[in-house]
Each structure stands twice: as structure tokens, then as C-alpha cells.
Design a binder for these strands. Sequence first.
DNA 1: CTGAAAGCGCTTACAG
DNA 2: CTGAAAGCGCTTACAG
Lengths: 349, 349
Amino acid sequence: MRVRIKDIARLAEVSPGTVDRVIHNRGEVSEITRSKVKRILQELDYQPDILASTLAHKRSILFSVIMPVSANGSDFWQAPNLGIEKAVKELAHFGISVQGYYFDMFNKESFISCCNELLNDKPDAVLMAPLFPEESVSFILRCQSMNIPVTIFNSRIDEMAGVNFIGQDSQQSGLLAAKLITWGMASSGDILILNMAGRNYNHKHILERERGFRSYFVTNSLSSLNLHTIELTQATEEAFKKHLDKAFSHLRVKGVFVTNSRVHRVGCYFNEMGVRNVRLIGYDLLPENIRFLKEGVIDFLISQKPEEQGYLGIRSLFAKCILKTDVPDNQFIPIDIITRENIDFYEYR
Amino acid sequence: MRVRIKDIARLAEVSPGTVDRVIHNRGEVSEITRSKVKRILQELDYQPDILASTLAHKRSILFSVIMPVSANGSDFWQAPNLGIEKAVKELAHFGISVQGYYFDMFNKESFISCCNELLNDKPDAVLMAPLFPEESVSFILRCQSMNIPVTIFNSRIDEMAGVNFIGQDSQQSGLLAAKLITWGMASSGDILILNMAGRNYNHKHILERERGFRSYFVTNSLSSLNLHTIELTQATEEAFKKHLDKAFSHLRVKGVFVTNSRVHRVGCYFNEMGVRNVRLIGYDLLPENIRFLKEGVIDFLISQKPEEQGYLGIRSLFAKCILKTDVPDNQFIPIDIITRENIDFYEYR
DNA sequence: CTGAAAGCGCTTACAG
DNA sequence: CTGAAAGCGCTTACAG
């Protein structure tokens, strides 16, 4: 039979109310009874019944999520919401609700005002995509001073005590991309690395992917393949085409690695120019990318599983706030390899 | 504010007890009040508070799991238990406990006696790996006559109303294996398909993988690659070696596809005989397989995610018994592609 | 600093 | 066939 507060109370010769005060460190208990109750709690390994607890509370818990607003077209930032909704549905019985705060990822001010708004609403915990490193750190410090736990996802910032991270190992994903793009590649030639982030906002992420990608060629002595990084950040459509035209006319391009989700733009280029037999690999299951994957233009996509990141993010806050269980400092998301043959089984449920 | 039984009772001018009787079809209610209460329940879209409900019940729910005992060495059948335990931990607050019944997968009698034992314990729901198709069907029928919901996992049996399935699309996984083994394969040659199931018990599964694998070569007109199926079911170590020796001396073997988790045996053979540059692909993240994957002897492993199957299995029973929500007839597990570059992120958590 | 009592929303005997 | 009361384990005013 499970140990109840009532049992502890009887053994400690106090009332249930007092036991409750001890359990939750509410004070107003003499040191002597406190230690006595504490001892018995430990001896019997008392575990609270969180169903009864949440039922009695009848308070509702607010989790706040702060991340970029999903831009038109590239709706990568819409995906986490699917996972968040799933988690909320599962946990709705515990009186959990979620409030989202969406900032413009190219506008630091909008991030800061989101942060302020969020703190005004006094959430019980925060899940955040820390796109602006410095501002994120100072925001986290503010949260911590208000005793609000924080979990970050998608991109990392420097280690901070008490902050949990959920996301992918970017460098390893680049290394995996290199394995896939070179696997069984017979002849020598050139491989392009295309960086075309919307802007520099998340550079660390992207750089790590490229670093991982390049390291594979060094480790495996693939010197017959030449790597060329092309920076297309903020490139116009015209500049984009010009760069690729130049590369394809001067080099024997065997493969193209796009370091983010814009790989569909290269897919378009391939189709327009009739490029064939050039391997193409990039990130994220955007609808445009999936289309090219199914057509056979894109060979592999690496998924960051943004939905799962959102899901695990909320579960992480739940564990911290309600269950009071330990949460791992870092939860690394698997690096899923998606092809036209298995894509159908990766729709988020 | 959430609608409570009390609210319904007041509106229907009856007592909470009567509302409860209507909600759970307990009978002992006059048709006239029943329909009145029913109407109001629907109008207000009453949703029970399952926390309060389980707290008041104070009964415990028993889920039974029936699957093969994990054989020595090949512990594929140990993996589902990890997921099951994870689910039970998450749901422990709802008073759920799990009892496992393990049969010898080569012994039909042991399966049948497991079934009988299980039913004696009168579980609230059953999760089962239906290795013996006919006996499984008759067992399911017995469960259904006792109003015990059933979810099956890993392998399918013919469609049965009310039975939910969780598992992988075997044919598609074979097709994926073909894509990976041929991707960028330059020259012509031979490809071996090795069937070495312990016995014929799960033949359908295996056959579908082979069928999917072969279909890829037809669809993509890969006629320069010749496929050879080698049956090694129940082969001794000696026969195994003899078959492979023969194949490797007569054919220009470019790749080997093992249709189940025994791919590590081929890995051993490769190491012993110094076989190099032959692609090797198989199933499941057994420790022996992972070792060869990390060494670069096995190129790809396809994971059936047995842990996730177990996890989803229990969640499926939970949804049916406690939440009373709809559960999809078929839940297809993603077909994960595992390489030495991403294996580290696929340990089950 | 401590205890008795009422309540969270649902369920379960029991009485009529 | 129906209702009033007690209880699940925990929390929260309130009284002392």
C-alpha cells in the first residue's frame, strides 16, 4: 500500500497539515517537528500523489514559449507548435496551459519586448529558442531571479547552470551529410557547400554543420573530392543563379550540400537547368523540400525534428514544475535520415 | 470554467450520482431522466476530469503484455520492455501496472498456455506480439468476448475489427534497404539476399522485406545487378560458411542484404575472410550489430524501434482504457536509417 | 507554531 | 429508480 500524508502524520504524531508544510517548505514549523517529519518522510520514501495534489490545488499552470514567428513560406518555426500542442493535450488534465510569444528573428528589439511581455504574465516555466545569444542570457538570468525554470531548444548558448537544452548536434549532422553525399561516389570531382541562411542570425549552428561536413573529408582522406564553400547569405535570386552558373560551368560538381533548409532553391535550379546526377542534400522537412525529395531531385534530407523538440520542451517543463524529477542537461535529438523511400513515415503525429 | 458533474446535475435537476450512472451506462436510471441527462451532457460537451476519476476509483488497472521471451544473445525481444517501462513510469500515477507473459517463440504450446494464464489474471487490456497467427486470432476473439481491448505490435495478422496495430511497413523497409545498398553503386555485379531467421516463425515479415527489396530493382531497372537469395534458415555454422564461400568465389558480390537482425554473423564472416568493399545492410540495433556498424563493416542498419513499439503499445492501451479516446487502427513506426555517424543518438531514453 | 475542517471532481455503497 | 453521504490524497484558509 502506498504511503500517504496521513500515515506520515500518524507516525510523527502531528496533523496532516503540518506534514504538508514540511513537504513544501512552507515554514511555520518548529525545527524539532520539521526534522522529525523529514526523517519519517525519508524512511518511508514518501512519494506524493500528484493526481490528488493537482486536484486539490485547482490552480492552473502557465508555460510560456518564446520563439521566432514562422515566416512566410519557410515554416520551420511552425513545426515546434505541433509538438507543443501534442504535449499540452497529453498534460491538459494537469491544468497546464501554454502561451506563445513570437518575435521577428531579424529584429532584436522585438525579441526583447517579447521577453518583457512574457515576464509580465508571470509564467511558471519558460521554453525558448535562444536566437540572440547575449539577450537570451540576460533574459534567462532574469527568469532565474524570479525562480522561473528555463529550457532552451534548437540552438545552444554557452552552458548555463540550471538551463536544459534540447536539440541536435549540428557538427555530427554535418558529418553525417558528408557520409551520405560521398557514399559510393566513384570518381573525383567537386562538392559545393552552400550557406544561405536568411541572415547571420544563427551562424553558429550553420558553421558547426559545415565544420562537421568538412571534417569527414579530412578524417577519411577523401582528397580526390574538392570542397567549395559558397556564401549566398542574403543573395538575391539573380546573384544566387549567377553563383551556381559559375560553379557548374567551371567545376565538375558531384554533389551539393546545403547547410540549412533552403535546399529547395537548389532543387528549383536543378530542374530549371536540367542538372542530373548531382547529389543534393540539405535540412528539414519543409513541404517544398519534401516535393523535391519525392521527385528524386533531393537525395537526402536531415530532419531536426522541430516537432519533437517542442514536445520534449514542454515535457521537460512539466517534469521540472509538476513532477519535480530530474531533467537531463542536454537532450540530443536523433539525426534522422530521410529519403523518398521512408518520408511517408515521418509525418508528425 | 470547466463543466462538472455537479453542474450537469443541477441543470438536469437530479443528483450527481444519477449523472454518474448515465455517464457510465450503469443502468438503474429511468429512460426519461437518462435521455435528459444525456442531452445536457452533450450540450455542455462535458469532459470528465480523469484525475478526479482515477483518484476516486482507487482501483488499479492491469495491462498484460504477451510476447516472446528474449532469447540468449539476440535480445531483440528485450527491447520492447524498455519502452513499456518508460510508459508505465509516465502513467504510474494513474494506477497502472503491467504484467508480462513470455512464451517460447518456437513452441506453440507455450504460447497457448501463456494466453490461458493471462486471461486467468483478468487484465483490463492486452498488448501482444502475435507470432502464431492462428492461435493469436482465436486468443483475440476470447479477449473480445471478455471485453478486453487488444493492441498488437511488431508483426501483423489479418485485419480484425477493434484490434490496433503498431509496427513497421516491412515491404517499404526492404525497398529502402535496396535504395541504400545500390545508391551510387557504379559497376555491375551481384547482390546477395540472406534469409536466416531462426526458424520460419515470422516468415511473412521477412518475405515482405525481400519483396520490397526486389521491387526496387525492378522499378528502377537495375538490371546490371543480379539478385541471389540464399536461404540459411536453421543453417549450422558450417553450412553458413559454405554457402557464403561459394557465393563469394563464384560471384562478384557487391552487396549483402540480411533480412533480419542476424547481420552480425555476416560481419564476422567479412572480418574473418578479409572481405572489403562489399556493402552490408541489415536490421536492428543489437549490440553485436552496433559493434560492426561502428567498425565500418556494416554500412547501414534499419531500426524497427522495438522500444518505441512497446511504448506506443502501452500508451495505446491507456488511451483506450482510461482516456477513452480514439486510437488509430495502424500506427506505423518510422523506418530509421542508422549509420556509424548517427548511431550515438539512437539509444532509447 | 499547530490542528480541525472544508474542498478539489468523481465514485461508491447504502438507504429508501 | 433516486439521493445523501462518505471517501480517494492532498491543499488551503481559518481558528487558536
